[in-house]
Design a protein around this nucleic acid. Structure first.
Length: 920
RNA sequence: GCUCGAGUGGUGGAAUAGGUAGACACGCAGGACUUAAAAUCCUGUGGACAGCAAUGUCCGUACGGGUUCGAUUCCCGUCUCGAGCACCA
């Protein structure tokens, strides 16, 4: 029997499906382990070789954990709502559900060929009404709750209303928008609309006017993490700032918990750091400056992290969008200010970013009073102050802040140094070091001492207090699109009202077109009868991250129609033990999901406060592109080595018609009509292509399809090769030519069991030499898998199989365990060999072998030797030598001695009071 | 600009509580078996120098320093690449 991978893989994939080998159920007698992949968005292009990398790693780990006796939950599903399907629908008129369905079928087919051990009975799709029912349900819960800062958790909105009715809102410490203080009597006197507007400012899911990232080309708003450098992540269209009324999630309320709970997570430092930066905690103080516009005085609150520099304030700055601007602009400055505001408003986000170094601003006409010095300072308006951070107003200290410095230089404002000996002639001194000067009672202190001292004084004076600010903003939750979850909310006389939970799911309505209406309303405005009880239903839909925020919970209990997840399932599976996916979700999905989980935790629906215990970011697999070189204005192509002798253009060539960088010239002529008559200038009779590592994409003609690899080499080879390529977390280029080595390994393995039709395995014990190879391998594979170092374990397999081949190993005892060890990596061939060894049941249900320490250690001999009568050494030798010989070796040359005793020892290294290596 | 991470043969990459640098694999070169090819197997393969040879010597982990008997590994500085954030007061 030859190693016929095509038949073998087909056979076992069918077997697993038929026997439901990987279906799991709650089993309290076994420890659980939950391994999750970030579910894919099923795009029309299908999977390329890079996509399954993480899935293969998680599959290996899942299979490993099963062998160790864990009850492993390893599900898969589809993040199926999203822009590409909708854009395709706009172009073709096809319903997004149709294309999505088709793409999912294709993904499934491709995944099945690789032999994953998913429990497909638990599959979820975010676009399935039975699934998004629970997305909508969570939204309703968020709508029905507020965040109590005193208890640091979400509480029902009814409890808030009860408080308002009895004592007003003065003692309510909530994460909320700007609300005036009112008494219980006032509250009761408000009409329904006013009450509803006030409550809206407290809700965790709320509707509010805010500056949003508006993408005209896509006709929708986008979240901060969906925008990169002023362009949409999907499609790369320009994005501008616009004020709009939008649904939002009060993620900011959870900022502190999202930050502090990072500590207990087993994530990479870099990923935690990214989240910390995104949350952006900064400790400082708020301070009140009296500001007068000549006729009236106002209290303007500013935020600063450098309270110590208050003696160096020479001006103040307001954000253009700040509400103070209108109040503080004097009649004389009105014209200039308005002109400036107009200009600033017109700029897109992109332009603002491109001009960050350009200093712009305008004087308001008002003056503020420095509360500590009593000095009068001018109040300016400038774009460099952001309305959305802090209070939208700052005290400017040009000597110690580079932005203030640039502004002061540009508008010729005074600069007062506050730190002894600092040089501020060319740039500001931003470092927090040195001793204070020109600073009244702070003089002589270090910066570290002065900051708290200054805040203490400000608090004593009652003109400010300590304050922590976060950069994390609330998530904008509506999208003006069709292909997403509808909001289960309708508007009764302008009051947003939640639908009853019994109405869920609120299904997406049919529409004639997927475009916004001519009036600029979202596509849902096209739906007939988009009404509830005669009232209009919200027309935007939820963003992509809505459906992906709690999918890991749904896998625990995917068919439950009564709850997102039953108590029993939640308490058994708890949370994800191992999560594998790309780093691109660091500040999006992984923040939202944590927020969502914490919210449900507050409400008691889930029992763990963090969703993903351990997280690994797999690297990207890049493409390896090939090039041909066309001599300009001809149809002649010159080989790589000779291209410098001509004036050439580099052209991407399909990697599938190139083998080992040698071009198949006939295939090239047939590839595209343009090249039908191509002529070649060869070196040594071959056309050699150039190459480069680039992103794997259609336009670079470097896409390698996993189906082709499975056809040519088999899924087991693909799986092992992807792991062999390099460390999981590292980006690395795909290069098909290296795959032969892994394939050869599998064939060599096969030949240990079969030679032609002859079955070689004998029912006998392993020899000591064979047992040593086996147990070293067991130890290596186990520690490597536990450390996610899959590339080195593949190497270890290769070495072990080479050694066993050399030993002509035919022991059933040894070869059986080899199969178990290999089964996480190459499940198909393992099943086949396992069956050949006489087992009825799948190798999935075997147990992971235990190594015996005695077999895994080198043969060593310890010699206590004293040297120079002073030092004492312990030598570890790999060959037996007499103490005399060893002593001679050490004495031969003090520290680095050389000893040639019959060729058994080459080098002796002696380290005082340490172990010494002797190499044979 | 700030914050992380990384730089090792022709290629992908091994090896760090400091101890034979280049495991394993690809590629390349040579050989065996074949009419031939495929497949398989064997040998060599960082660089320089010396030798008929076994072998030996020196240089080598981005660059420059430091600690150490000993540094790819630890420390300081420089350069390059990658990722993230970016007027966050």
């Amino acid at each position: 029997m030859e190693y016929n991978f095509l038949d073998i893989e087909k056979k076992w994939q069918a077997y697993w499906a038929k026997n439901k080998t990987y279906q799991v159920n709650i089993d309290p007698s076994k420890p659980k382990y939950y391994v999750l992949d970030m579910f894919p968005y099923p795009s029309g292009a299908g999977l390329h070789v890079g996509h399954p990398l993480g899935y293969i790693a998680s599959d290996i780990y899942s299979r490993f954990k099963r062998l160790q006796g864990f009850n492993v939950l390893h599900p898969m599903g589809y993040d199926a709502f999203g822009l590409p399907a909708e854009q395709y629908a706009i172009q073709t008129g096809q319903h997004p559900a149709t294309t999505t369905e088709k793409n999912i079928a294709r993904y499934r087919e491709q995944m099945d060929r690789i032999g994953f051990s998913y429990d497909w009975s638990r599959e979820v799709r975010t676009c399935d009404p039975e699934y998004y029912k629970w997305t909508q349900w969570a939204f309703l819960k968020m709508f029905g709750h507020w965040y109590n800062k005193q208890t640091q958790k979400a509480e029902p909105i009814d409890s808030l209303v009860a408080k308002f009715e009895t004592e007003g809102n003065a003692n309510v410490d909530a994460a909320c928008g700007d609300v005036e203080v009112f008494t219980a009597d006032q509250w009761r006197s408000f009409d329904k609309k006013v009450q509803s507007d006030i409550l809206m400012k407290y809700r965790i899911a709320y509707q509010g006017e805010t500056s949003v990232n508006w993408c005209p080309a896509l006709g929708t708003v986008l979240a901060n993490d969906e925008v990169k450098e002023g362009f949409s992540v999907r499609g790369g269209h320009p994005v501008e700032q616009k004020k709009m009324k939008q649904w939002q999630l009060r993620v900011s309320a959870y900022a502190e918990r999202l930050l502090s709970d990072l500590e207990e997570l087993d994530w990479t430092d870099s990923l935690k750091e990214m989240q910390r930066n995104w949350i952006g905690k900064s400790q400082g103080a708020e301070m009140i400056f009296k500001v007068s516009n000549g006729t009236q005085e106002y209290d303007v609150t500013i935020f600063t992290t450098r309270a110590d520099t208050v003696f160096g304030v020479t001006f103040m700055v307001l954000a253009p969008e700040s509400e103070w601007v209108e109040l503080l602009t004097t009649p004389e400055q009105k014209g200039a200010v308005e002109e400036y505001l107009q200009k600033a408003k017109k700029k897109t986000e992109r332009e603002r970013m491109a001009e960050t170094k350009k200093v712009t601003g305008v004087f308001s006409g008002s003056y503020g009073i420095n509360p500590l010095t009593g000095e009068k300072v001018p109040v300016w308006i400038s774009e460099y102050v952001l309305a959305g951070y802090g209070t939208g107003a700052i005290m400017a200290v040009p000597a110690h802040d580079s932005r203030d410095y640039a502004f002061a230089k540009h508008f010729d404002l005074p600069i007062v140094p506050l730190i002894e000996g600092c040089d501020i002639s060319e740039e500001s001194f931003d470092a927090k070091e040195g001793f204070m000067c020109n600073s009244g009672f702070l003089n002589g202190m270090t910066v570290a001492e002065a900051i708290p001292a200054a805040i203490d004084r400000v608090e004593e004076m009652g003109i400010g207090k300590r304050k922590v600010n976060y950069r994390l903003r609330d998530a904008i939750f509506s999208r003006q699109r069709y292909w997403g979850e509808p909001f289960p909310v309708y508007f009764q006389d302008g009051v947003a009202t939640p639908m009853p939970e019994s109405e869920l799911p609120l299904e997406l309505p049919q529409v004639d077109k997927f475009l916004p209406t001519e009036a600029g309303e979202p596509p849902l405005a096209r739906a007939k009868d988009w009404k509830y009880d005669g009232f209009p239903i919200e027309m935007s839909t939820m963003p992509g991250f809505a459906g992906s925020s709690a999918y890991y919970l749904r896998y625990m209990d995917p068919h439950n129609s009564e709850a997102l997840v039953s108590k029993e399932a939640d308490e058994y599976w708890r949370n994800v033990d191992l999560y594998i996916g790309g780093t691109e979700h660091a500040t999006g999905h992984l923040i939202y999901s944590r927020f969502w989980n914490k919210f449900l935790y507050d409400l008691g629906y889930v029992c763990e406060k963090e969703p993903f215990k351990k997280l690994i970011n797999q690297g990207m697999i890049q493409g390896r592109s090939n090039f041909v070189y066309r001599i300009k204005n001809t149809n002649t192509f010159v080989s790589y080595g000779l291209k410098d002798q001509y004036d050439t253009t580099e052209i991407h060539v399909d990697v599938n018609i190139v083998d080992h960088d040698r071009l198949d010239m006939e295939a090239f002529r047939n590839w595209m009509p343009d090249f039908a008559n191509a002529e070649f200038i060869l070196e040594d009779g071959e056309y050699i292509c150039g190459w480069a590592v680039e992103k794997m994409s259609k336009s670079m003609f470097n896409v390698v399809n996993p189906d082709n690899v499975c056809n040519d080499y088999g899924a087991d080879t693909l799986r092992m090769y992807e792991m062999f390529l390099g460390p999981l977390e590292q980006s690395k280029p795909w290069d098909t030519k290296g795959i032969d080595g892994v394939h050869r390994f599998l064939r060599k393995l096969w030949r240990l069991y079969f030679k032609g039709d002859e079955y070689l395995v004998k029912d006998q014990k392993g020899t000591p030499a064979e047992m040593k190879v086996l147990h070293k391998l067991i130890k290596k594979v186990q520690t490597d898998i536990e450390a996610f170092s899959f590339n080195t374990s593949v190497s270890a397999f290769m070495i072990a199989i080479n050694e066993l081949s050399e030993l002509k190993c035919c022991s059933k005892e040894v070869l059986e365990q080899i199969v178990i060890l290999l089964s996480p990596f190459a499940p198909h061939i393992s099943e086949e060999l396992w069956e050949a060894l006489g087992h009825q049941e799948s190798v999935t249900f075997a147990s992971f072998p235990k190594y015996v320490e005695g077999y895994t250690v080198e043969d060593t001999f310890d010699y206590p030797v004293s040297f120079n009568g002073k030092m004492r050494f312990k030598l570890t030798l790999s060959k037996s030598l007499s103490p005399k010989e060893v002593e001679a070796a050490v004495l031969a040359d003090g520290n680095t001695a050389k000893y040639l005793a019959g060729g058994s020892v080459k080098k002796v290294i002696v380290v005082p009071s340490k172990i010494i290596n002797i190499v044979c």
